[in-house]
Each structure stands twice: as C-alpha cells, then as structure tokens.
Design a protein around this nucleic acid. Sequence first.
DNA 1: TATCCGAATTGGATCGTTCAAGACGTCGAG
DNA 2: CTCGACGTCTTGAACGATCCAATTCGGATA
Lengths: 342, 342
Amino acid sequence: MAEKVTIATVARHAQVSRQTVSNVLNTPHIVREETRQRVQEAIATLGYRVSQAARQMRTGRSRLIAVRIEPTRDGINGSVLDRFLHGLTETAEAAGYRALLYTAADAAAEIATYDDLLSAYDLDGFVLTGTDHGDSRTAWLADRGVAFVTFGRPWDDPDAHPWVDVDGAAGTAQATRHLLAAGHRRIGFIGWPAGSGVGDDRRAGWRETLRAAGVDPTGLDRETLDGIAEGERLAADLLAAAPPPTALVCASDSLALGALQAARPSAPAVRAAPDGRPGAGVPVIGFDDTPVAAAVGLTSVSQPLRDAAARCVDLLTAVLDGPPRTPAPVLLQPSLVVRHTA
Amino acid sequence: MAEKVTIATVARHAQVSRQTVSNVLNTPHIVREETRQRVQEAIATLGYRVSQAARQMRTGRSRLIAVRIEPTRDGINGSVLDRFLHGLTETAEAAGYRALLYTAADAAAEIATYDDLLSAYDLDGFVLTGTDHGDSRTAWLADRGVAFVTFGRPWDDPDAHPWVDVDGAAGTAQATRHLLAAGHRRIGFIGWPAGSGVGDDRRAGWRETLRAAGVDPTGLDRETLDGIAEGERLAADLLAAAPPPTALVCASDSLALGALQAARPSAPAVRAAPDGRPGAGVPVIGFDDTPVAAAVGLTSVSQPLRDAAARCVDLLTAVLDGPPRTPAPVLLQPSLVVRHTA
DNA sequence: TATCCGAATTGGATCGTTCAAGACGTCGAG
DNA sequence: CTCGACGTCTTGAACGATCCAATTCGGATA
C-alpha cells in the first residue's frame, strides 16, 4: 500500500513549503504563476486530496450540508422530495459541498439533531424543507447564527432568512384559468385545512382567479387532510351540491386522484382518450406532477424541483462563502402539465 | 458566546486527565465505576460532544457512510430508492453513523467519486444499490479493502462480498402461483432483456413456477426496456398471439401499468371494483408495489425496503466494528399485495 | 552603495482527539 | 521483604491541515 499523501509530500515533491501548497489551494492569487503550476502538477501526479478532517479541525468548516429526509407519507407526494434531493446533491457537489441526510420525528427532535450535527460534525449549513407559521426550527438556527436556507417561504416574515419557494398560488391560478378558458365557471377546489402556509397559498390562487373572472367562490371549496380516500369523499360531497361545480382543482395529486374517482365513476380507464383530448366527466387538476399523475394521465401543476434545489444550494453557498448579508429570496414559477383529465 | 467544550474542559471539570475522559467514551470497561460516573456527569452538565473531525483525524474513521442517489428514471420505480434511503438513514443513525449522498453518471464516475470521498472525507463504508454482472465498482472497492454492502446480489459469486437482496424469483413465483390458483394456465410475462441479474431472476421465478405446474412457458414472454409505453406495446403483442395468455406477470409496475391499458382497453377506471373483487379483463400483476400501483389498484409484489435498508446497515457495521470476516448475506422474501387487477 | 518595500516563502504553533508508554498504589506469590 | 502483575489513571506525541509571525529576495529608491 502506498504511503499517505499529505500536504508535506506535495511540498517536498514540488520543492516548496507546506504553506505554499496551502496557498495554492486556498488563495492561489498570492502565489507566483510558475510556482502555482509546479505545485498543481505535483498534486496531480501524487493524487493528493486535502483531508477534510484536518482542514475542518483548523477552520471549523466541514463542507457538509444537512438535509432532512422525510418518510414518504402516502407515497404519492413523497416523490417530490426524491427529485429535490437529487438536484440538491448534484448542485452541492458542483459547489464543493456534500449532502448529509438526517431524519427527525418532530420539530423538537429535529432541533436536537441540529445540535448534534453542529457540534459533532461541524455542519456548515442546513436546507429545511416545508416551513410553516412560527417555525421553531428556523428560530433556533437563526438564534445561533447557523447558515440555512428553506425550501418553502417563511410565512410570517419574508425577510427572516434566505428561502426558495415555488409560487403555489400562481400554480392553482394557472390551473383555474385553464379551466375557465375551457368554458367552466363553477370551478371547485379541494385543499388542506386553513392555517398551513402552503395550503392557504394554493387555495388563494384558485379563489382570486375565480373572483377576478367574476365568479363567487363561496361554497365551492372543501378542506381535508391529504389522501386519496379523502379526495374522493370531498369531491363526491362537492359534486352533490346544487348546483355542482363542473371542474375541480386540487391541492395535491393524492386529492386529485381521489377526486377523479368521484368525478368519473364509470369513465374509461387510465389515460382515457388516446388521442389526447380530455376524457369524459368532470375535469380534475392536481398539484405536484407526481409520477402517479403522469401514469394516470392526470393534468397537474409541476414544480421546478431541480431548479429549486439548485437555487437552495446557491443561496446557502452565498451565505457561507460570501459576505454576511442575507441574499434575496427566490420565488419560482410552476407550470401546468396538461394531460387527459382537464 | 460560551467557550468551546473540549475533552480537556470535561477533564478539568471532572478532575481527571483527558485520556480518562476518552476512555469513558470509547472503552468504559477499563474505567472505575465511580470515576466513570463523575465524568459522565461532567459531560452532561457541560453538554460536551466529541468532535468528529478530531477523532477522524486520529483514527481515520469518520462514522459516515455513503449512498448513491439515482435520478428517478420514469419516476415510478424511483420511489423504491426513496423508501430505501429513509430506512437506511434511520438505521444508520441508530448505529451512530450518518448517511452521505452522492451522485454519479456512470460506473467510472462513481469510482472517481469513491476515491474522492475516501481520501477527502475518510468515508467508512459504502452502500451500493443495483448490482450487475461483473460490476467494476465492487471490484474496485474490494481491491482497496474498503467496507461496503450491496443492495442486490453479486450475480457472479455469491460470496464475493456482503449483500442484502430481495428474492425476486420468489416474488414472481408467488404472483404466478396466485394466478394459477385462480385457474389461469397460460400466464404471460413481460420483463427486461436477458443479461441483467435482476431481470433474469424475476423471469426465472415465473418460468419455473409455470413449468412446475406443467405449463410450457415457451412463447409466453416478451423482453423490453422499462416504461409504460413499452409495457403496453408488448402486452398488446402478447395478447394478439394465438392462443393468447389469459393473465400477465410483469417485471415492474411501469410495465404492468402499460400492460393494464392493453389488457383492458375499455375496463372501468382506476380501482375498478369497489367491492374488492378483480375487475374485468386480463389480470395483471406488477412488481415493486410503488405508490402508483397502490393508487391504481394494481396487484403487485412488494419488497421489504425498510427491512432491507436496516440489514444493509447491520452488515456494514458488522464489517466496520466487528471482526474482519465477511458476514453472511441476507435474502429477504417479498410479498404479494393483492388489489383489483388480479 | 545602502536602505526600504512588498511579494513570496518559511518554520513553528495550533485545532481536539486517540495512541503508546509509563506512573502509582495495591495485592499475592515466592 | 522483594518482586511482578494488575487495575487505574496520567503524560507526551501524533494525526494533517491552517494561521501567524518571521525571513528571504529582487528591485526600486535615496
């Protein structure tokens, strides 16, 4: 087995001191061009890699960022996280960081994990997914001056910390406009109970678009927790009203899938109309463009998750490497993927 | 800001030397009970956490294990990875390890990443997902004596390295028996091209079960890459044969979903028979029990992913912390989740 | 020619932990 | 009584990088 290559090995090989090698790595501009090249060459031939452990011990920086991985709830919306994670890992690698996973049952456990990760692993920053009103996690991190970015707005104060989010209201608005353009007026909405930032946002997009079109949204929406069965139940309830809505917008693909079953009980199967025109029955639009939506032919609002993840890393590295000011938040626009259900 | 708590701080507080504190943490049995308690108390009151960086520098161990996160291909089968990852992170945490993510475009890039992770981060071990014949990655790792476990068998030599896998043949066999029990004889199979370990395994389960039942499988199967469209095409092809199969087993949920469309072009929608009895048309069984299968009511073979991930961590920690012998591999049994399509 | 200046380089100290070696008191065997 | 063994604890050195202060060196200036 070959001997371990340290900064000293490189220095000897390039006939310079350790410090010069360190400078080549960390502050190349202060090293003479010729020397710099000789050192780079030695690094390459020896296959030298800086030891993160040693660097970390001296600098307190680990070049590691943490992301929480959540349990896949009903399995449908879980794929959102998967795509986000992949984008995050990729962008982080390009920026010289690595992504570390952790799990946590609740906010308190998550904070305990922060503490552990910070003191044991010297984590550089965190990417939080899914924020809500009065989030105790962000408060804890901010208190300690830890770098972090959230995927999801801080619903109380938009300037509280750097964040990236997708404009959910714009998504449901787009879905609603699509249905309005098709001639629908009484467009229903199935979403989550008031109080969650994301849920309220998506509902608002539908409500305001309807109002702008001169339609009174009163009585046209329902609230429930997520799930296919719930979606079916509420869609049935909504369609039993007099007069019933002629189309439905849902806050998630799970709800939409349930709604589909209520909206077209005897419609042709999955991907009803091979020619691409909407199938029969009440049109339904979902949210998140999950694989299930694609498989079933459900029209859905798609979030630019790869991009969102990349922007999260951008913001985080800006905080870590750049000047100590909070970078501007990023609000991305979703897009409507039209399939066969609307 | 409070001063940093190091092992020396604890030592002073507990009136012992640094080494004694270290012993309390790493080899408690050689410390006198009374002293041990005093040190533990000091650790608790001071909120001391060992610095992984410092420990790592001395021992060369990082308590980090790496897992590759793949792009979600068609999005349907991607959820498999998601569930696996969550289980892995959880079990790793319990064992005192953390999971680090990485991506790689191909085997060569993946090996380059190993090199980087090993020399820069001192990674303790790797969990590889998806193995194939003559895997260059495992050879590289084994050559260097790096600890690793694969989720997926080494198809060439079952004793090459520790592994965890799910018995795919048993899964398709179970699916086939289910259909045989329902009175079917001519049961078709749609799978991947010969040559991939996983694909051949799943096909074998179907073939042997059919043979054991006295049915000649010749001409009853088709090969293709994964995808809904492909599944539909081949199912149509298979059903056009004379005589056609009366039921289908598929190597993935994607293929099964496509097959469903060919097998029951005008069948009732998603979750056809609310009473739980199979819907009309040719029965179809998928593989992986993805969220899509659950949503659509597709009968599918379910892999115990959580368990598989846990066993991966078990094996890896056994290699890392235990004696230098390769632990016995683990082959888990899948289970058939019967829904409405079979 | 002597002096000064800044760019480039050097050696030593340091981060927090574990390893190797040794000190100390107690005990039982010879 | 001496010796070695044992259990318990302490001390100094080392891991590999960066930071800091000091030094060299070539060229410009007085």
